[in-house]
């Protein structure tokens, strides 16, 4: 800030150089996944409302719990729950990727592309596996 003020006082006004922002770049996988990590984190933030509701309902009694079961059984409820599952797994795998990067490993172009793609494919695959196991545990889709 000190530099900007000093510059304005000294020379004639001219546009300050600005660094290029996101829209100038072609979307890259690592970039999209970085954004997605934040988006899934924010979605999970609000998704925790459903988890809290579920726990409170279980603690409140059978009637309150029936409401949660009705919501989860509805189409919207299932879409929300499926989205929550994927966001949770994706954010978790993205977190593991970031923890690997925190150790200064996996920054070579091939490595970072692999890690990024692996967390995307892994999150989609794991989400379907969890739902398949869930439906099996319930004795098939209802």
């Amino acid at each position: 800030m000190a530099d900007i003020d000093a510059g304005a006082a000294k020379g004639p006004q001219r546009p300050r150089p600005i660094s290029p922002h996101l829209q100038i770049y072609k979307p890259m996988l690592t970039m999209v996944m970085s954004i997605l990590h934040r988006v899934t984190g924010a979605a999970l933030y609000f998704g925790m409302l459903v988890i809290a509701w579920w726990l409170i309902a279980a603690a409140s009694g059978p009637n309150a719990y029936a409401n949660v079961e009705w919501f989860i059984g509805s189409l919207i409820g299932r879409v929300v729950l499926f989205g929550f599952t994927w966001a949770l797994i994706h954010h978790a795998l993205g977190g593991v990727r970031h923890l690997i990067w925190d150790t200064l490993r996996g920054f070579e172009p091939a490595d970072r592309e692999f890690l990024t793609l692996a967390s995307l494919i892994g999150s989609i695959a794991l989400t379907f596996i969890i739902w398949a196991v869930g439906y099996l545990a319930m004795g098939g889709p209802r």
């Binding site: 279980a58 059978p62 029936a66 869930g134 545990a137």
Partner: peptide
Amino acid sequence: VAIIVALLGRSHAAV
């Protein structure tokens, strides 16, 4: 996730 999957479709009393 394992706990949630294990609780799916169970009665309120079991949950």
